[in-house]
Design a binder for these strands. Structure first.
Length: 498
RNA sequence: GGCCCAUUCGUCUAGAGGCCCAGGACGCUGCCCUCUCAAGGCAGAAACACGAGUUCGAGUCUCGUAUGGGCCA
């Protein structure tokens, strides 16, 4: 076993950073940090047809946002670069041919038509599908002939026909594959580009990767890779196949989805950047991801990555696939929000308000933030909870102004008296407001609830809003009175008096 | 269809043979607090897929079945 822990996260730049990939990256990172090892970022960009140029930026910003820093890879130094597979194709070609020289791989000249015909023949005969190994058994004269015709070929791995390969996996112990179930897969394509298998094995070897932590879905390729290491005489890394993340329905893996969708009313986020723009904190998302497939211990659910590092071990990762408990993320994000300093929170909230088109007033924001801190679950929630502070004109159904068990006329009278009292109140702060309004309710023989409700709608335009007295005081006397005046005219419209 | 993986409350999980008539968390329900909504407090409902075996004893080990999933076709 290699003495130094070196792990890698090796995404293909085919789209934005997926939450499932992020979880794999997180486990790699935790493992590296736990053992004082290196976390390497490698970009597997040999598939030109699916290449998305913006993907790299998205990976970089997504990983950084989550707090996962890499020791080697794009934008950092490293002795094992380059870290883009597209810049290493000579290496793959070299080792692909070396495998042929060593007798562990062979050139295959079969055309697409030949392959299709062979497959159909196998199906008809009820045999196992897969390449029929035609070129594996070519005679040397046949090979020489094809070589001299310089016909296009691929390089296939020569899988042993008998025996079995056992993969040692940190998360699931041993997994054994019979060789007669394996295929002679393509390593090097006819255009000279490597397949995933070749590039992966070559890179992991030369980058001195000690542990391969990847998703469950790669288990079937593990025996091929192990066989390749053996053929090349290279030391094998240790495998750890992390459980898959499933769709919320439990049907199918989440990775198949590329962007957010709605499932039974629940918004299902897929891309890391979607979590970000939905108003989740990176600490909460990272914490949340840790709790799927792994447990901190001591019945603790809330913790930082720094706290997780010393306790993390791949051996403790739960092998069964899981869905993301999104409702738990909401709760967790709320926990982080409640723990923050209000000033910090208001800074985080601001862009979300602006995004919603609100004209944010800085000191109003600072005054209002404590009122909503324990009520919002995401930063985006702030738009609904404090948007009215910044609205120039409130829009609401005037009948909402009618108090519970009251009519328009009595509501109008109550609001009018409240307005007079608020206008004359000596100090417009929470304590005074509460005292004044409660006294007023008593004087008018009203229960406080209905009265406060009328004022709440008048001032916020909503039936549900932050605590009334704090809201009024944060809003200030002028705004409060102006909004009440508007409400009074609404009520007058509802109760025409002669 | 072949190979492979997995299976504890609705969900995420703890549990490495007796500490488990199974613990925590989210969610849900009820009560308390209360100006609405939250937050908080208290209480509650809720699970070892099934069947054999090993063992004095199995959620925990073995095998089979079922179900779900992955890869390939």
């Amino acid at each position: 076993m290699k003495e130094k822990v070196r792990v890698r996260f090796a995404p293909s730049p085919t789209g934005p950073l997926h939450i499932g990939s992020a979880r794999t990256a997180l486990f790699n990172w935790l493992f590296a940090r736990r053992h004082g090892g290196a976390f390497i970022l490698r970009i597997e960009d040999t598939d030109r047809s699916r290449f998305v140029p913006e993907a790299l930026d998205d990976f970089v910003s997504g990983l950084r946002w989550l707090g996962l820093d890499w020791d080697e890879g794009p934008m950092t130094n490293g002795k094992h670069g380059p870290y883009f597979q597209s810049q290493r194709t000579d290496l793959y070609r070299e080792w692909g041919h070396r495998l042929v020289e060593l007798g562990h791989a062979y050139k295959c000249w079969c055309s697409a038509e030949q392959l299709r015909a062979a497959r159909q023949e196998q199906q008809r005969a009820g045999q196992r599908a897969g390449y029929d190994r035609h070129c594996r058994f070519l005679t040397s004269t046949q090979i020489a002939e094809l070589e001299s015709a310089s016909a296009p070929y691929v390089i296939r791995f020569k899988t042993p026909l008998q025996g079995a390969t056992t993969i040692h996996d940190l998360i699931r112990d041993h997994i054994t594959f019979e060789h007669d179930q394996l295929e002679d897969l393509v390593l090097l394509k006819s255009d000279g580009f490597p397949t995933y298998h070749l590039a992966n094995v070559v890179d992991d070897h030369f980058m001195e990767i000690s542990h391969i932590v990847r998703a469950d879905e790669w288990i079937p390729t593990a025996p091929l890779h192990a066989l390749m290491y053996e053929a090349l005489g290279w030391e094998k890394p240790i495998y750890a196949h992390a459980p898959l993340i499933l769709n919320p329905s439990g049907k199918g893996k989440l990775s198949k989805r590329s962007q957010a969708f709605t499932d039974g009313g629940q918004e299902v986020l897929i891309q890391v950047r979607e979590f970000r723009s939905a108003g989740y904190f990176p600490q909460a998302v990272a914490n949340f991801l840790c709790n799927v497939g792994w447990a901190f211990g001591d019945d603790r659910e809330v913790f930082s990555l720094a706290e997780a590092i010393p306790r993390f071990d791949l051996k403790d990762v739960n092998p069964s696939p899981a869905r993301l408990p999104y409702s738990k993320l909401e709760w967790l994000n709320g926990v982080y929000i409640r723990r923050m300093k209000p000033e910090t929170l208001s800074v985080a909230i601001r862009p979300f308000l602006e995004e919603a088109g609100l004209a944010v007033v800085a000191d109003m924001l600072v005054r209002a933030t404590p009122l909503i801190q324990e009520r919002i679950k995401t930063l985006k929630d702030a738009v609904d909870w404090m948007g009215f502070f910044f609205a120039t004109e409130l829009r609401y159904e005037p009948t909402l102004l009618i108090g519970k068990k009251m009519d328009a006329a009595s509501s109008l009278a109550a609001l009018q008296q409240a307005r007079d009292m608020l206008a004359s109140l000596c100090k417009f702060d929470s304590v005074n407001l509460e005292e004044g309004l409660r006294q007023l309710a008593g004087k008018m023989n009203l229960k406080p609830g209905p009265l406060f409700g009328i004022i709440r709608v008048a001032v916020t335009g909503q039936k549900v809003a932050p605590p009334l007295f704090g809201t009024l005081s944060a809003l200030g006397r002028n705004q409060t009175l102006a909004r009440i005046d508007r409400a009074l005219s609404h009520l007058e419209g509802l109760s025409p008096r002669d």
